[in-house]
Design a protein around this nucleic acid. Structure first.
Lengths: 213, 213
DNA sequence: ACAAAAGCTGACCAAAGTGTCAACTTTCGA
DNA sequence: TCGAAAGTTGACACTTTGGTCAGCTTTTGT
């Protein structure tokens, strides 16, 4: 029984690979590369183990596919640091976007964190260079703002680390963040309060005219 | 040949347990609980595997011993937030102490990060409650400063998350931090520059009279 | 000096892990 | 409709892993 099947998203291959990747993200995020067993991914994706091996020839292949896909998906979220904008606006949007992305992609965030903590063994040179270049571009913009007197002379690279670290923390270390906020779990409102606290503190910290309270 | 052996630090048991713990910290930090193999710990500590089992009856026992020891070792490093101090001084010292501790105990930091990302499965209720109480005490101090007009009305809990996240990042995610700073590895001077950037930015962000540049 | 306590370890096991394969079923283009 | 291509899978082979154990050596108190 031939069926309509030209939409690439619904071809069997696409669907199953998506199932495997999705399950893989969750489990790699929690267990790390070495701690993850293929049988667990198979179970979580509802496929027999041998079927997983039909699509991916090894554990490493699943993992690197996920990591590569992850890096690519970040560029969208983080294009708010551009010279045309005013620093206040740009930073506000950046922090908001980063926290939003992080909250909606917790497993991906943790998988990346896990990969880094484990020594970035599978993060390809290409990916690292890409990340470095994106950072460099942002640094140039901030340096421009500083030269134009729109920002205090803060080290842009350390500033970006502060932003990255502060936003990432809520997802990667949720149990600690929740304990610190005396909540059992973090909700959207906690992320919003985080956004305003980070934004206000950083803006007062880097803008020449420290604004309202 | 009986030998003098009353110094507890040098009894065989103490020495070997220390070797095992030390090796365990490094390897658990890199591989996580599930990813770590006892044989690897044995090799790294220079002991046969069976000898490791002579001192610890299971992998979990090694791991929980390390985690518990870790939590305890933090209290020293972080006692700078006290009401007698001025906020500027207290925060400056806190950031410095945290970065120092983190730099000198990278593996421990990563082990803790790894444990949290993996769901805090072995972090005992007691330990979490202890951490919460330390945070609460700090929060009270900050609230006091705010009430006294010595600090702007910032949410203390989110502020502490910013501080914790920013300082922790340099050790836990060193490869990313180094890439961001365009260094191949982080050195003491990078940690110092981090301390000044974080301190200056945060202080301008939370003090009523924003001080010098 | 000597026996008891402490420490040591090669060899071993059962369970769990990764990856393979041959035979089967389903899908699909013409 | 039908043969080739794609997809499926139970069973299997091989390796690694956590953990045990019996018998050995070293340390230690007296």
């Amino acid at each position: 029984m031939a069926r309509a099947a030209r939409d690439p998203e619904e071809r069997i291959r696409e669907r199953n690979m998506r199932l495997i990747i999705k399950a893989g993200i969750e489990i790699f995020a929690r267990k790390g590369f070495d701690g993850t067993r293929i049988a667990e991914i198979a179970e979580a994706s509802g496929l027999p183990k041998a079927n997983v091996y039909y699509y991916f020839s090894s554990k490493e292949e699943i993992y690197t596919a996920i990591v590569a896909h992850l890096i690519a998906s970040w560029d969208d979220a983080l294009k708010y640091i551009s010279p045309e904008r005013e620093p206040a606006e740009a930073l506000r949007l950046y922090i908001k976007a980063k926290l939003d992305y992080t909250r909606k992609n917790i497993a991906e965030s943790r998988l990346f964190a896990s990969e880094i903590i484990q020594g970035a063994r599978f993060l390809k040179k290409k990916d690292r260079e890409h990340m470095r270049q994106v950072t460099d571009a942002h640094v140039v913009v901030v340096e421009g703002w500083i030269a134009a007197g729109k920002m205090l002379p803060v080290d842009p690279r350390h500033l970006f680390i502060m932003l990255w670290a502060s936003t990432q923390f809520y997802a990667d270390f949720e149990p600690v963040a929740a304990d610190g906020l005396r909540k059992s779990r973090l909700k959207a409102e906690d992320y919003e309060k985080a956004a305003t606290t980070i934004t206000e503190t950083i803006l007062k910290g880097v803008l020449p005219n420290q604004g309202r309270g």
